[in-house]
Design a protein around this nucleic acid. Structure first.
Lengths: 108, 108
DNA sequence: AAAAATGGTAACCTCGATGTAACTAATGGA
DNA sequence: TCCATTAGTTACATCGAGGTTACCATTTTT
């Protein structure tokens, strides 16, 4: 669990993984799809995800350079879990009213 | 997804949730079970998890005081997902050798 | 009279994650 | 000759999560 949350626990990693879902994207495309991320941080995150074997990096010796990123098989296995997490996160307060601290809930 | 990773994306939250699994624990017990956490940060995390409806707090007007923490129903729904995440995190490099960057893998 | 037990709070510090802006190398094209 | 393109890198600044230590209120026990 610690290992997994180390990977998906930072600000951008889950978004990058989601954006990369089933496709291969170039660095510049990622920088557009992952809205708000700086190129520097995108580079760092991709390096980290590559080193952790979640993302695969393919570099082509062309001018101008081309680098393509995609999920590894292991990285793809994260998608359904991320999806569950997403569903869970959206379910808040649908069934949390049966708790005893209803009085406190007006403050939230 | 952003909401969910906001909750489980910090250092202690997943551990607290796991430790709290099916039982009710007092503050002092939590401070022992969640090894390494400071009382200050434990307080902060519990407040945050309570506010986010993952954890329920019950305070008893006794001397010395007694406060019990447990998971809400919604919080309990997180357990199987956390468990999957844990399994996924442990699976690394079992099936990641079929990637092309085998040469690079010796460096990891 | 003082210590023990409990669940905190307050003031302060550190460090890592993230952000900003400018810069680079290599080549093709105007 | 100079600009555009691409995938970064470098040198900063900032911001918040987390850590440390000391302290508090209340009652029972010694």
């Amino acid at each position: 669990m610690i290992h997994a949350t180390n990977i998906i626990g930072n600000k951008w990693a889950p978004i990058i993984i989601y954006v990369l879902e089933e496709r291969k994207l170039r660095f510049g495309q990622l920088a557009v799809f992952v809205e708000g991320i700086s190129r520097k941080v995108l580079t760092e995150q991709l390096k980290e995800l590559e080193q952790k074997k979640v993302v695969k990096r393919e570099s082509f010796a062309e001018i101008p350079p081309r680098v393509e990123y995609s999920l590894t098989e292991w990285g793809k296995e994260l998608l359904p879990i991320l999806s569950q997490l997403c569903t869970w996160g959206a379910n808040i307060s649908i069934d949390s009213d049966d708790e005893k601290n209803i009085e406190l809930q007006k403050r939230v």
